[in-house]
Each structure stands twice: as C-alpha cells, then as structure tokens.
C-alpha cells in the first residue's frame, strides 16, 4: 500500500449511512420475485416500512437466523434471488453460518449487514464492531470472497446491483447511524408464513 487513495474501504473509512434509506434503495432494486429474510429488530422494522412484499419474511425471535433461513430458501429455489438482511449483533451471534454458506456457495444468495456497532433495540450497548471487529474481513476469512463494505450510498447501489445479477454468494456491509427503525412489523407469525409461501409460490 502506497497512497491513501488505494486504501481499501473498511469500517474505518466507509460513510455512516441510514438503514431505512439503504433498505429503500435495496427494495427498489429487487427483482420482483426476489425473496428477502429480515432479521429481528430494526432491520426488520425498516424492511417492513420500505414496502410490504409477499416475498419478504419477517422473523420474530430466533435471533441470528436470517442468514440460515435465507440459505434454506436459496437451496430450495435455486432460480430465485434470496437476500438476508441482518444487523451486526445478530450476525455476531451466528458467525458460523458464514462458513456454512462459503462451503455451499449458493449462487443466488446475498447477505446484507447493517452495522451500527450496537445492540440498538436493547439500549444501544456496543457490539464488538464498535472496537474493531470487521464483519467483511470475517466473511472473507470464512470463505465468502465477494464481501465488501459500501463506501457510500452510490457504492451500496452498485454492490446490490452486482449481487442481484451475478453469481454469489455475496456479503455487503454498510455502516449505519443510530436512528431507530421507522415502524414495527406485524407480529402474527402464521400470517407471515402464509404470505411468504404464497409469495414464493409454494402455497396456493
């Protein structure tokens, strides 16, 4: 490394963005049939507020399982693009799934991590990413080579476009601010399963 402009984008130099803004950008880019699994808490709340789609699954509890659930959907329906939306605290709880995803290499799977370096919904206690843990480095180390930080909104758009059109697996990480979620999801799990399965065409 010689000049600072060649320095790769990391959590230290990526812009701090807003989760709801990024979620809206993502939803606008999704192919109509793409499935999205929202992890618990504000990640899910902003996904809900960014527009209800029958292809969205909103977790209630089971913290850390957005990526495994998305992997399951991706394996069952290899022709469909599948996205997991997670927070940093949730991903830290289930880091092993990065290794499993790297091992299986599902071409249609994208993981998006909204990293505010805090357990925001429980009072903002810092996570390890507040003091140096780099989730993209961890994902690359696990074997997900196509893992990157979004430097800004424009780069987030570019990475999302790539991830939704080219072979995965992909991991996109974004540093986000501490703004709370913009709403709350419906909390009827049976209705969520029903809508999602109709959205996936597995229930008539």
């Amino acid at each position: 490394m010689q000049a600072s402009e060649t320095k790769p984008i990391g959590p230290g130099n990526a812009q701090v963005m807003n989760r709801f803004e990024l979620t809206k950008r993502l939803v606008a880019k999704l192919p109509e049939d793409a499935a999205v699994i929202g992890g618990i808490g504000n990640t899910n709340f902003d996904l809900w507020m960014a527009g209800r789609r029958p292809q969205n699954f909103y977790m209630l509890g089971s913290m850390g399982l957005a990526c495994p659930i998305a992997l399951g959907v991706a394996l069952a329906q290899p022709q469909r693009r599948v996205v997991a939306l997670e927070g940093d605290g949730s991903l830290l709880m289930q880091l092993g799934t990065l290794a499993t995803i790297a091992m299986l290499k599902p071409k249609n799977l994208t993981l998006i991590v909204m990293d505010n370096a805090a357990y925001q919904i429980t009072g903002g206690q810092p996570t390890a990413t507040a003091v140096g843990t780099d989730l993209v480095t961890i994902a690359r180390g696990a074997g997900i080579a196509q893992s990157a930080w979004a430097a800004d909104e424009e780069m987030f758009d570019e990475l999302a476009t790539q991830a939704l059109t080219k072979d995965g697996p992909w991991l996109i990480a974004a540093r986000i601010d501490d703004k709370p979620g913009t709403g709350t999801t419906d909390r009827d799990p049976v209705v969520i399963t029903d809508r999602f399965m109709r959205g996936l065409g597995t229930k008539k």
């Binding site: 990526c67 495994p68 399951g72 959907v73 069952a76 065409g201 597995t202």
Partner: peptide, 10 residues
Amino acid sequence: GIVAGAWMGG
C-alpha cells in the same frame, strides 16, 4: 433455520 427456510421454499 436452514430446514425451516427450505420448507417454506418447497
């Protein structure tokens, strides 16, 4: 979680 997701996917 993987088994649950896969079942919803058919």
